[in-house]
């Protein structure tokens, strides 16, 4: 049964009384312990992998070394044969034979290590997926539990705080009314700002001698003088 099904069953089962846990704390602890164990195994497997990979590299180097040595000795043997020294050639050939035995042993070891590396890597991947899955499931369980407890706390708070959760439509209307009120106030203050802004601008213009000017005796006299010319 998947974790979701379990949770659904628990919720449908009416385990919703405050204080009654949907997921029993003990099984959560056991689950957490299982995750920790799996993680420990994973750490160990990774360490093993490092060891085996080191051995694999050593074996591979050893195989190369023996192969080189065989090639060299085969060269020696054919050189000995060219010189007609059959006895020396045989001696070298014996060395090559023993090297070949060593080579096949090293190759077998290398294959073994390579297979182990592949197996360990597969195992690690599988464990990692498992741990991730366990963690996801634990998260589902804990979230369910947390929401359940949080809901209990919220409900308690509302009951004790003497306030109640309003009907959704009422809440919306109140919020909208507040928003409207805020908007209206904003508009009003903008209007006020604009009006007083205009007034102060006019005053400044007047002070600077721009725009409508109050007639003064001097300006009238200037005008008459201008006409006489």
């Amino acid at each position: 049964m998947s974790i979701f099904k379990k949770i659904m069953t628990a919720i449908r089962g009416g385990v919703t009384e405050a204080g009654e846990a949907i997921v029993d704390a003990n099984s959560t602890r056991i689950f957490e312990q299982e995750i920790r164990d799996a993680e420990n195994h994973l750490t160990k497997a990774k360490r093993d992998l490092t060891d085996v990979m080191a051995k694999q590299m050593q074996a591979s180097r050893e195989v190369e070394r023996i192969q080189r040595e065989i090639a060299t000795n085969e060269g020696y043997a054919s050189q000995a044969l060219e010189k007609g020294d059959e006895a020396l050639a045989l001696e070298v050939a014996e060395k090559v034979a023993s090297l070949e035995t060593e080579l096949s042993a090293q190759q077998a070891a290398l294959e073994n290590f390579t297979a182990s590396v592949a197996r360990l890597k597969e195992l690690i991947k599988k464990s990692e997926r498992q741990v991730a899955d366990y963690k996801r499931q634990l998260s589902v369980v804990k979230t369910t539990d947390s929401v359940h407890k949080a809901t209990a706390a919220i409900t308690d708070n509302f009951v004790s705080g003497n306030s109640k959760l309003l009907n959704a439509k009422e809440s919306l209307e109140r919020i909208k009314a507040k928003q409207q009120n805020f908007d209206d106030r904003l508009k009003a203050s903008e209007q006020l700002e604009a009006e007083s802004g205009d007034a102060s601008l006019e005053a400044k213009l007047k002070a600077a001698g721009i725009g409508d000017q109050a007639s003064s005796a001097n300006s009238v006299l200037d005008r008459i003088k201008a006409k006489q010319k």
């Binding site: 706390a153 919220i154 308690d156 708070n157 507040k178």
Partner: peptide, 22 residues
């Protein structure tokens, strides 16, 4: 903050107090 088995924070957005966020 609301006290309980799990810590819950009640957050009110000014002007929208009717719809608190937990």
């Amino acid at each position: 903050p609301i006290a309980g088995e799990v810590d819950v924070l009640q957050i009110s957005i000014v002007g929208r107090e009717e719809l608190p966020i937990f």
